[in-house]
């Protein structure tokens, strides 16, 4: 299956050529979880504060589905 992955703020450093707002399209096996994606991208899970799937918060071990839009976000704030 195929998922779309976005990395924000400091996490973009793990994929050096990734442009601001650019999505990675990854071909992954059925049952893949956010934790698997992070392992594939070389991102330590401790660096990730928020995971969103299609605009909703999910956990590290929730299985993903074909066509999901995934966002990994570190600790951020503002106002």
């Amino acid at each position: 299956m195929r998922v779309e992955v976005r990395l924000f703020a400091t996490l973009r450093r793990y994929v050096p050529d990734l442009q601001v707002g650019e999505a990675l399209t990854l071909e992954v096996p059925e049952g893949t979880t956010p934790r698997d994606l992070l392992a594939q991208l070389g991102i330590p899970p401790d660096d990730v504060k928020i995971i969103m799937r299609n605009g909703r918060h999910i956990g590290l071990d929730d299985p993903l589905a074909d066509g999901d839009r995934i966002a990994f976000i570190p600790a951020v704030g503002g106002g």
């Binding site: 924000f8 703020a9 400091t10 707002g21 969103m52 605009g55 976000i73 951020v76 503002g78 106002g79």
Partner: peptide
Amino acid sequence: DGGLNLYGTDVLMNIINEAG
């Protein structure tokens, strides 16, 4: 070098957009 210091408050733009 945290989120606010590096990117300012506008670090939220992509996040809130992602949340819909």
